[in-house]
Amino acid sequence: MNMTTASSPPALLKVTDLGVAYGQVRAVQSVSLEVGAGEFVAMIGSNGAGKSSTMKAIAGVLAPVSGRVEFNGADVTGQPSHRLVRQGLAMVPEGRQVFAEQTVEDNLRLGAFVFSRTPKMIDEAVDRGFTLFPRLAERRAQAAGSLSGGEQQMLAMARGLASRPRLLVIDELSLGLAPRVLDMLFPVLQQLNRDGLAILLVEQLATQALAVSHRAYVMETGRVTLQGSARDLAQDPAVRQAYLGRH
């Protein structure tokens, strides 16, 4: 444990000066952020600000070009996602990305792939998913591609939880979803968080994101421009003007 931060609990996720580029195009300049164990952190910002790229680099989908990612005290920079999942860092990707040709149940089983050697834990993971979202149980044998957008998001969340992560990164929960679906999903996230799951939520709907999270970061053109408690940011004039549609 680092002496200088001995007073505060060590962060579960610690990102320092992270940079991401696609070929010549730099998408993320330099981002630093932290998520504590059991904390609910939101990241807001407009389209193309680099939020998704940041999340992809954290979850090991992309290799960052600079900076450092620490998870659970270990340096995991550049590790591929399939290893990070085994260490407890899972992500629900943008656009849900369910395995469309496979059944709902198979999707959940795949979510528990890390337990391949212990079939019992896979069955448990499937049961937990169906308990969390009973709607999915009704559709268990249906191809995932035939689900509605909301149901697919539920499946993506349940699938992400199947590996029993300590931190769940969620990229654009609301994308293309109706408010009434969101009204159902946000409380589920809060409940999961109360049960001890740390959550890092990327969201364009700033109002809702700030309403459910403890702390938040605001990203703009590849950098974190503001950070603070969700309550403070919701009152911040600049944030209200840019993202909450209020003056």
């Binding site: 399939h82 085994r86 395995f99 040709e101 496979q102 795949l110 792939f113 890390v114 992400g160 590996s163």
Partner: peptide, 24 residues
């Protein structure tokens, strides 16, 4: 089988498959 499911999943959504812990 888990292996069979995983072998189909990787071509449908390689990124998501990686996020499930599957070594694509």
């Amino acid at each position: 089988t888990m292996l069979g499911r995983a072998m189909r999943a990787i071509s449908q959504k390689p990124v998501a498959a990686g996020l499930m812990g599957i070594d694509v």
